[in-house]
Amino acid sequence: MKTKMQTDGLDVFYGEKQALFGVDLQIGANEVTALIGPSGCGKSTYLRCLNRMNDVVPGCRVSGRVTLDGEDVYDPRLDVVKLRARVGMVFQKPNPFPKSIYENVAYGPRIHGITHDRDELDALVRDSLRRAGLLEEVEDRLNEPGTSLSGGQQQRLCIARAIAVSPEVILMDEPCSALDPIATARVEELIDELRAQFTIVIVTHSMQQAARVSQRTAFFHLGRIVEEGETTKIFTNPDQERTQDYITGRFG
């Protein structure tokens, strides 16, 4: 396994309350890593450390080491804007901007100056939409507001928006929890396709989803990693009793 991102001894505090306790985890390149665990176990907090989205939470303190290709993500000299261009994010609830479908996808390329003229931008927008499996559905209404789409389409629009800036890692925070089963299946397929180009970290409450889409799984409980490893092993033959209990639905 080639490591893309890695955390060593990651502690996170929200004010006085400690949310993560010395989390060590390696995230393999071009793999889907699933973070599972009961609510409040710290998996979303962990995810948000990887692109420093915790910076905007008042009172949040992070210590320990997070690296991307060996570079320290929390290095004060590091430009957080550049980091987030390399580590994109898809949220729990689809959050397209109040702009047209086209403008939603063009947003990232515009702020990062990725394209040089209108034709290039058009091509990039269409390509991103196609890779997110949305182009066919929206081709003739790119100028309609992104919010006019259905929930599942909105989430794929958010994925298109994230991949338009060609990130290396995509973080997904329960991307299907607001979607119906059919839309969920589409997004899961998409995640599997995107794995070829991107490293993906996905937080999920659905054990089946973790089993379906991921190659590696980390089980969080009470702010610590209980067990991590290959998904097939975690789901068939976990080392820890607590993992066994959780995936069989005995708690959580």
Binding site: N51, M53, V56, V81, K82, L83, R84, A85, G88, M89, F91, K93, N95, P96, F97, P98, Y107, G108, I111, H112, C158, R161, A162, V165
Partner: peptide, 20 residues
């Protein structure tokens, strides 16, 4: 979520305010 979405795209806070 609009604010977070834009920041997560790598926009600065002032870009986020002006554009979103």
């Amino acid at each position: 979520s609009m604010l977070e979405g834009s920041l997560a795209m790598g926009a600065t806070l002032s870009e986020t305010i002006r554009k979103v």
